[in-house]
Design a binder for these strands. Structure first.
Length: 816
RNA sequence: GCCCGGGUGGCGAAACUGGCAGACGCAACGGACUUAAAAUCCGUUGACCCGCAAGGGUCGUGCGGGUUCGAUCCCCGCCCCGGGCACCA
């Protein structure tokens, strides 16, 4: 067959069209005839266009999926759209275009881009989270959580922008101001919000890490562990001196991990938001307190200067009976522990700083195991030690003190051992339109009533106005708002909050398996054989939020009886970011690189090869396309060689064994890259080396070996450059999709080098090389080295102390 | 401040973890083909030194020490870059 040129445009458009017309091509068979393999990539937000981060993510996933098909697996490889979210609504406000329309046109465009790039998705499983068919199951699952007490409503402090008159998510507060009104400071307001009780699962989320530790990057595991932030300590009541207005005794409950230091507590400090703070601050102090609550400096902990004031009240230490002043401090967090602390300046750095500033006494009560109790300390001693000046407890170690003092608190009823988490319950309420409506109505008689299952979905009304001001568009729409109570039939109002979009992405990967189910989110028996996901691939940006929520959601669904696994993702791969000039690409920075231009000019195969070749996939890569032409040249070279050598014939050639050796070494190398570390940059480099060798050998190769090499090269190329591989496969008269062919095996004997070149060192310095037959013994190698002319010259006049010989690797002669 | 990554030619990187540092690719330079250019093909390319030459030598993986016959790789102490967390009591 004569050589054929590589016209990427013709080839790729032809195959993209054929693939799009054949929805069965990438379908999972799902009949158990083959072992299953689930490849999952994080679904994109349909922002409008793909960026290079997507291309990288999906190129990695697609390469793996195609490889696993070739390894004989029944591969599930789905794709979908994380389609709810703020950008759509902002676009609506700005362009007077409905979010649904905006989103759907973006989805259509991005789907075309994905298909043009040749990603092998089973589009019959496509999931779009903004469709009622999907989000009704968000609602259904939310109701199940309500039944289990896992979804609840409570009043909580939130960020409030007076200009928008709406609540803002933490991410939407920039330097203490609203992101849309950059000069408007955000206030803290107490509002009713919906929460999911993720804290109930904190312990399981920690324990079950044992199940995924082997398959997840340790970095992500650590981040999640820190995020959950389990800490063991003690809750202790300090009795407040003097009764309240009604004459009742009051207490201040503090949480501490170091109850062993309590004899050194010289004051109690309340968070400004603590309910007692308001009560204790009358008159002048009330204004001071309000200012502290609203203080924007507190949003930025790096620059927070510790401040506080004395309330004029005192509290009693239940262990020592000492009376200590009660302060309000801006550094005490209302959201952690009990929102109140005992300050032990001698043994806590923060307390030390605060007490020093306000001249509150510093009383050391822990001495180092080797050393003396500090007198007038200049810094806090925060380690464990021996208790001193602590009444009956003096002489105990910190560890023992903690344990026994907790027991006493519990026995006498003024406290208890307690475990506190940094993790908070997940606030899912959003006062926005473009999200899943929370399926609840508010009735004057029956209160908060769940919408019955048979009335789901609560559909987002299409006919709303987007002003960007006032309340959520839903709250202004009578036809949505006014309804009847499912319990009493009387008039009621719908809940107008929608769900955080992280709800959508917490379980979509289950829906893929049974995407059209109208009775349940998915049938448990359909999902079971596919879980846990064999390989999840995405950016490390989602290390905490999405990946933690998904783990939580999986456990809830397990407890409802929908799934059997504890963990959704067995293996996680976090790809590196694609940056431009060392900066992350983002819309706001305006430095997004669109793949279209490259695909247009060089083709999708080149684009994919390029992103895989530029760096190992877990590493960040700085975008620099100057080397992209190399990938195109490589494909062109490969194309030419394969087309003119694919025919076969009789005879033998001088370079046959050399070509076959390189071929089998290459298969071995690429197979091991897939099975071990996914360093596709070295896989592609190996393929390039093979092509270089085949070009060098071509003239002296037999037709049969040429044919053999041509065929294997197509197969090796298939996971990386599907268009070119498919075209070559067809062109050379072969049938069936190339990515469903068997992955080539290698023969160790054929891959084996006949002779090895061994470096010879003298005192660790390279002095020569010897060539020995592969498999030579240690002694043979040593002798060959010592007999080498060049080495002999180097040894002249010196005595050999010893010879180190690593067979097949090196000889090192140590001389004096 | 704390916890992870990372620092290798002009550039992206490799060296599959203690055994020839720089595979593969880009860029650059030289040559072939061409009326010419592009494309393509062949060659050179870490730095420095000695030699007319073939060849030989010294240095070299952020910096300074250490372990070892041998260190990009292991240990100790620093510097720089990227990411995450940061008053979590």
């Amino acid at each position: 067959m004569p050589e054929k040129p590589y016209h990427h445009q013709d080839i790729e458009l032809k195959w993209a069209e054929r693939w799009a017309a054949d929805p069965a091509l990438y379908k999972a068979v799902d009949d158990g005839s083959k072992p299953r393999y689930y490849v999952l990539e994080m679904l994109p937000y349909p922002s409008g266009r793909l960026h290079m981060g997507h291309v990288r993510n999906y190129s990695i996933g697609d390469t793996l999926a195609r490889y696993q098909w070739m390894r004989g697996y029944d591969v599930m490889h789905p794709m979908g759209w994380d389609a709810f979210g703020l950008p759509a609504e902002n676009a609506a406000i700005k362009n007077r275009r409905h979010p649904a329309e905006w989103t759907h046109s973006n989805v259509a465009h991005m789907k075309k881009q994905l298909q043009r790039l040749g990603f092998a998705y089973d589009w019959d499983r496509e999931v779009n989270t903004c469709t009622p068919e999907y989000y009704r199951w968000n609602q259904w699952l939310f109701l199940r959580m309500m039944e289990k007490g896992l979804a609840y409503r409570k009043s909580s402090l939130v960020n409030w922008c007076p200009e928008c008159s709406t609540v803002l998510a933490n991410e939407q507060v920039i330097d203490g101001c609203c992101w849309r009104h950059e000069t408007t400071p955000v206030e803290q307001r107490e509002l009713d919000q919906w929460f999911l009780r993720i804290t109930e699962y904190a312990e399981q989320l920690l324990d079950d890490m044992a199940q995924i530790e082997a398959g997840w990057p340790s970095q992500v595991i650590t981040m999640q562990r820190n995020w959950i932030g389990r800490s063991e300590g003690t809750e202790v009541d300090f009795g407040l001196k003097g009764p309240d207005q009604k004459g009742n005794a009051q207490k201040i409950r503090v949480f501490t991990t170091r109850v062993d230091t309590i004899y050194g507590a010289t004051c109690v400090i309340l968070a400004p938001e603590h309910p007692l703070s308001k009560q204790l601050c009358a008159g002048e102090l009330a204004a001071k307190l309000k200012a502290m609550v609203d203080d924007q400096g507190r949003k930025d902990p790096e620059n927070l200067v510790k401040e506080g004031f004395f309330t004029g009240h005192f509290a009693v230490n239940p262990y020592s009976g000492a009376e200590v002043p009660v302060w309000i401090g801006n550094f005490v967090l209302w959201g952690y522990g009990t929102g109140a602390i005992m300050a032990v300046p001698a043994h806590d750095e923060r307390d030390f700083e605060f007490c020093k500033k306000y001249s509150i006494p510093i009383v050391p009560v822990i001495r180092p195991i080797e050393g003396e109790l500090a007198v007038n300390p200049t810094e806090a001693f925060t380690e464990y030690g021996i208790m001193e000046n602590s009444g009956e407890w003096s002489g105990l170690t910190s560890e023992e003190g903690r344990r026994r003092m907790s027991e006493k608190a519990e026995k006498e009823g003024f406290g208890k051992a307690s475990i506190t988490y940094r993790l908070k319950d997940w606030g899912v309420s959003r006062q926005r339109y473009w999200g899943t409506p929370i399926p609840v109505v508010h009735c004057k008689t029956d209160g908060c009533v769940p919408v019955p299952d048979d009335q789901l979905p609560v559909v987002l009304p299409p006919d709303v106005e987007f002003t960007g001001r006032g309340k959520s568009p839903l709250a202004n729409l009578k036809s949505f708002l006014e309804t009847t109570c499912p319990k009493c039939g009387g008039p009621a109002e719908r809940e107008t909050d929608t769900m955080d979009t992280f709800v959508d992405s917490s379980w979509y990967f289950f829906r893929y398996v049974d995407p059209k189910n109208e009775k349940l989110p998915f049938a448990p028996e359909a999902v079971e054989p596919w879980f846990p996901v064999d390989q999840y691939i995405g950016g490390v940006t989602h290390a905490i939020l999405h990946l933690l929520y998904s783990r939580f959601w999986c456990k809830v669904m397990r407890d409802i009886g929908l799934v059997k696994v504890d963990e959704p993702f067995k293996n996680l791969f976090t790809q590196g970011m694609v940056q431009l000039h060392g900066q992350t690409m983002s819309k706001s920075k305006g430095n997004i690189v669109d793949p279209d231009e490259m695909v247009q000019k060089y083709g999708a195969d080149t684009c994919r090869l390029f992103t895989l070749f530029a760096a190992p996939p877990e590493k960040n890569m700085d975008w620099n396309e100057s080397s992209v032409e190399g990938q195109w040249r490589f494909l062109t070279r490969l194309f030419k060689w394969v087309t003119r050598n694919a025919d076969g014939g009789e005879g033998s050639g001088e370079t046959d064994s050399r070509a076959l050796r390189k071929l089998h070494q290459t298969i071995r190398k690429i197979t091991s890259d897939f099975d071990n570390r996914w360093h596709f940059n070295t896989s592609i480099a190996a393929l390039m080396e093979l092509m270089n060798e085949l070009y060098a050998c071509e003239a002296e190769m037999s037709p049969a070996v040429r044919r053999e090499c041509a065929e294997k090269v197509i197969l090796l190329l298939a996971p990386f450059a599907p268009f070119a591989a498919e075209e070559l496969w067809e062109m050379t008269g072969r049938t069936g999709p190339v990515f469903k062919q068997q992955w080539p095996g290698f023969d160790e004997e054929l891959a084996r080098e006949e002779a090895l070149e061994i470096p010879v060192q003298v005192n660790g310095k390279l002095r020569g090389r010897i060539t020995v037959p592969n498999g030579s013994s240690k002694e043979e190698q040593e002798q060959a080295a010592l007999n080498d002319g060049k080495i002999k010259a180097n040894l002249d006049g010196k005595s050999v102390v010893k010879v180190i010989c690593v067979p097949g690797k090196l000889v090192n002669i140590v001389v004096k």
